[in-house]
Amino acid sequence: MSLLELENIHTYYGHIHALKGISLTVDEGEIVTLIGGNGAGKSTTLRTISGLVRARHGSVKLSGHEITKMPPHQIVMSGVGHVPEGRGIFPRLTVQENLEMGAYTINNPAEVKRRMEEVFTLFPRLKERIYQKGGTLSGGEQQMLATARGLMLKPKILLMDEPSMGLAPVLVDAIFDIIKKLNAEGSTILLVEQNALMALKVAARAYVLETGRIVLSGTAKEVAANPDVKKAYLGG
């Protein structure tokens, strides 16, 4: 049984049919990536999983349990972490408060503190900025904060939406190093990326989306070797 299982998901924005029957699986301990152009439905897939938009048909299962109809906050509590597109930092909350929000459902302050120290070992830069407002951080720091915040609840699976967007190349490398490190420590990650080259390097498997449909899937190596993918996403 896969950790996360999407079956024939159809999602609409008003009259726009955004996802036209997406089925995919993510196994425990895997990095799986969704690649595709703008408007292919990558973010919508993640938003459907975490309940921000509702699937009209189909089902989402986490460890075999149906989560399709749950409200977003319950989906989070059942173990889905989501680092949203554009990072979703609360600009007028401090770094510390942002992290506390990540552990909102934990009622034991000592435990929150302990987990914060844990994420600080992964992102020492955030500790230096602990009293700074989220909105004053650089793009890279915000991405670190968003990722750290997503880890505060120790999710079974972390959905990451375009973590490299808008970052300088050196920071893109740093973010992907962190993704690899998280995976090595046992995290399961579903990664959405425009930067297909990097994504295919870290992922075990990949799905290629085009206009709301999965057009190709396989191991990352297979997908990277596909001539169409090379032409469309890997610059040659």
């Binding site: 409200p71 977003p72 949203p84 979703g88 609360f90 007028r92 990540g102 915040r149």
Partner: peptide
């Protein structure tokens, strides 16, 4: 305050918006 700043992200924190 989180809901005021970003409602969607707040729900991703497990907040019942």
């Amino acid at each position: 305050r989180s809901v005021a700043q970003d409602r969607n992200t707040a729900s991703l924190m497990g907040i019942n918006v």
